[in-house]
Design a protein around this nucleic acid. Structure first.
Lengths: 233, 233
DNA sequence: GCAAAAGTGTTCACACTACACCCATGG
DNA sequence: CCATGGGTGTAGTGTGAACACTTTTGC
């Protein structure tokens, strides 16, 4: 490639958007922001960043998560979705968006903090119109999460340390977008041997009846993972 | 974004590589070329193209397939794999590779034509060392194909119009990288109702015994597809 | 005492696995 | 006549789906 040709090719910009899914124990939500400047000022968009040529996309997503939610690397599941490459995605020029999604546990504190910084949490199944092709990106992310949730217990990234079976079931129902039978669900979960009783229970204030709290058996999961284990859902 | 900032960002180049899988009725193969110029002159690489900012990646892949194999759009399965974005992938500068894979039927004519143009077909499980991160891309493509083959009958894109059950089984065995039981395989395939007897048979010259030829029932598949059908393998 | 959520078993249908022999044909 | 590959059935096991009642406790 000649210097002249090089000049013609190296004129693309890179950005990464993040579809951040949070679960608060009841609802699965997606984070969006309002755009502060042109183009599409005031429109809702996914959190994202333009990326300088010498910086990595992974690093950009890491920075985004740090800025937006002060995240815990070890408790956050991050994965590249795919590249969105349409020529006219962005009015400024050719911008390729390498989109990611991440899964986090949503505490009331986190939820409020993000909102006080201008973020909005929308329910998974009722995301409004966004600028650029960001609705398409979310759609794609939802499909990916559905598939992941079926095969890997990524759901555990979305739940608090200790959780009830009802919360776990609720998460699966939201993610897979269908209702599940309570008894069948418990059978499947317990048969997997991936969760262990903590001995704790919810306080009776939350609901009429107390319920047992469980946690994820990470050690067992690591072992199974190595063998190419599928969680099967 | 100011004009000055814009200048800093719009300095990335785009390219697309293609992992082309071909099946000749017995072997599943991957297409690679020898690089004709620096950097990495003489090294083996995946077919690919640098992409001018006003051109689309899909178009680039389409052109690649046209140049390399004069392909039939309707018989070729193409899908984006993911973006490979490491900062130092390419010594010329920041080049983001949006990789694709495609599945084609391999006829002896096609195989030869491609080889006469400098292409090399390597068996799926014995691809040599390639330049850049292309081995990583192939690895990723193989994993993707395994998953796709289990869920969608993409295998039919790899077979001739009319094929024997033995060919179909051989394809699945190669793609999934494990042996399958003949009787169980037939049961599953026939139960799916997605293949129909053509009434034709192989000629007795090919093997000791003639075998029936089948084709894929595309109409039935279209209908099932709409309902979010899974091929289950 | 009643509303709300937790917890608990059984039955049936279907799909997956493992497994072995006969048939047609070309050489 | 034998080597090669095509073609066929059954029994056992496991998983998924459907389905209803009892218990606890706050109000």
């Amino acid at each position: 490639m000649t210097a002249e040709e090089k000049d013609q090719y190296f004129r693309v910009a890179l950005c990464s958007s993040l579809v951040l899914f949070g679960f608060d124990g009841e609802e699965l939500k997606v984070l969006v922001y309002k755009k502060l400047n042109e183009p599409f000022k005031e429109a809702l968009i996914l959190p994202g960043k333009y990326i300088l040529p010498h910086l990595s996309n992974d690093q950009a997503i890491h920075e985004l998560l740090t800025e937006k939610i002060a995240y815990d690397e070890h408790q956050t599941y991050i994965e590249q979705l795919k590249a969105f490459t349409k020529v006219f995605r962005n009015p400024m020029g050719r911008v390729v968006n390498v989109a990611y999604y991440a899964l986090v546990k949503l505490t009331p504190q986190l939820e409020e903090r993000v909102e006080s910084q201008g973020g909005f949490w929308f329910p998974y199944d009722r995301v409004p119109d966004l600028a650029f092709d960001h609705n398409e990106i979310i759609h794609y992310a939802k499909e990916r999460v559905k598939r992941r949730v079926k095969r890997r217990p990524v759901g555990f990234n979305l739940l608090p340390e200790e959780f009830t079976i009802a919360q776990l079931q609720s998460l699966y129902e939201k993610a897979l977008d269908r209702e599940l039978d309570k008894r069948n669900f418990r059978k499947k979960i317990f048969n997997s041997n991936l969760i262990i009783e903590t001995g704790n229970t919810t306080s009776p204030k939350q609901h009429r009846k107390v319920s047992k709290l469980y946690k994820f058996d990470e050690e067992k999961y690591e072992k199974l993972s190595l063998k190419g284990y599928d969680f099967l859902f």
